[in-house]
């Protein structure tokens, strides 16, 4: 029982990473019907930027703002930089290709992903980088015999707050309604006076920024980052997006958390080596019985 609860908490931690990345996929997918392959690399770039800030500004920031000040600063700077990067990538790699339909955009997305990944490799080198240990809180907590770290608690709380804010924006505000309308039917939404460019601006700044924050959290959690990790996380997060129902924001959050928990339970009770196989088999089974994901609408595709 103790193991199960610990594994579920570990799973929720990883799941919240997947969920935050999945949000970026889901928003872009909802509006543009595009699998945004670059998103995983936004996440990696965020992680590396956070790493650089922690390495170079560590002493200064910690002296003035304390340990958490340094981490928050790293996250903020990474998020800001990635919001800018997101806009630039959208302008260069996607915008000229929208009129050609969605498939060329997939290749363009892959191209952008290759560019970003190799840029990271050229700048930071091909080897693994380690997050500076003294900059990361290392405190174990015991709740009723269940062993979790302070970092996990902070990550979980912070992720849920971020997801809550995004949920509020998308589901409860007028602007969120315009984003959802754009996802439902782009032409009609445009005719109703919703500015396509504003929605694009929103999803291509917020998505990468969330990815960057997740990147910094992953760096702190695992301590080790590599320039190719975006592919793995991107693949998982995209899977989570589909699991929840494409383009559905609450679905993406739920899908991410579910994926994380399944992965950890699979690792604990089945086999660590086969945990990803377990996850993908669950995904396939879910899609066989619910072909549009857990939260996806059951209506037939438009004819």
């Amino acid at each position: 029982m103790r193991v199960a609860v610990e594994q579920i908490i570990n799973g929720l931690t990883i799941g919240s990473f997947y969920a935050l990345i999945a949000l970026g996929y889901s928003m872009v997918y909802g509006i543009l019907k595009l699998i945004n392959f670059v998103h995983g690399d936004f996440f990696t770039l965020g992680s590396y930027l956070g790493y650089t800030i922690l390495i170079f500004a560590a002493a200064f920031i910690t002296a003035h703002f304390g340990l958490w000040g340094g981490i928050v600063c790293a996250m903020l700077v990474a998020a800001l930089c990635l919001a800018l990067t997101g806009l630039v990538v959208e302008r260069i790699a996607y915008r000229p290709i929208y009129p050609a339909g969605r498939l060329p955009a997939v290749v363009s997305a892959l191209g952008a992903s290759i560019v970003l990944q190799n840029a990271i490799m050229v700048i930071w080198g091909p080897r693994y980088q380690a997050y500076p240990a003294p900059m990361i809180p290392n405190l174990h907590l015991l709740f009723f015999g269940i062993n979790i770290t302070l970092l996990q608690v902070v990550i979980l709380v912070f992720s849920f707050v971020l997801m809550g804010i995004l949920y509020y924006i998308i589901q409860k505000t007028l602007f969120g309604a315009s984003v959802r309308a754009m996802a439902l039917d782009r032409d009609t939404a445009s005719l109703m006076g919703i500015d396509f460019n504003r929605v694009i601006l929103f999803i291509f700044t917020l998505g990468p920024a969330l990815g960057a924050v997740t990147g910094v959290m992953v760096g702190m959690y695992y301590r080790q980052i590599s320039f190719t990790m975006g592919w793995n996380y991107g693949l998982k997060a995209f899977t989570a997006t589909i699991l929840g129902g494409i383009g559905n924001i609450p679905g993406a959050m739920f899908g991410g958390l579910l994926l994380g928990v399944l992965e950890m339970l699979g690792a604990a009770y089945i086999s660590a080596a086969w945990k990803d196989v377990f996850v993908f088999i669950i995904l396939i089974l879910v899609l066989i019985f619910r072909p549009t994901g857990i939260f996806g609408e059951t209506t037939a595709e438009k004819v």
């Binding site: 699998i35 693949l235 589909i242 993908f280 088999i281 995904l283 396939i284 899609l287 066989i288 072909p291």
Partner: peptide
């Protein structure tokens, strides 16, 4: 056979999953 009725990107992600399952099975 069981997944052929899936449409568009749902089929896409299932094929991704299938490819990954094959690769992971080989590694293991």
């Amino acid at each position: 056979s069981p997944i052929i009725h899936l449409r568009g990107d749902y089929l896409c992600v299932v094929t991704i999953g299938m490819g990954e399952i094959v690769r992971l099975a080989l590694i293991n």
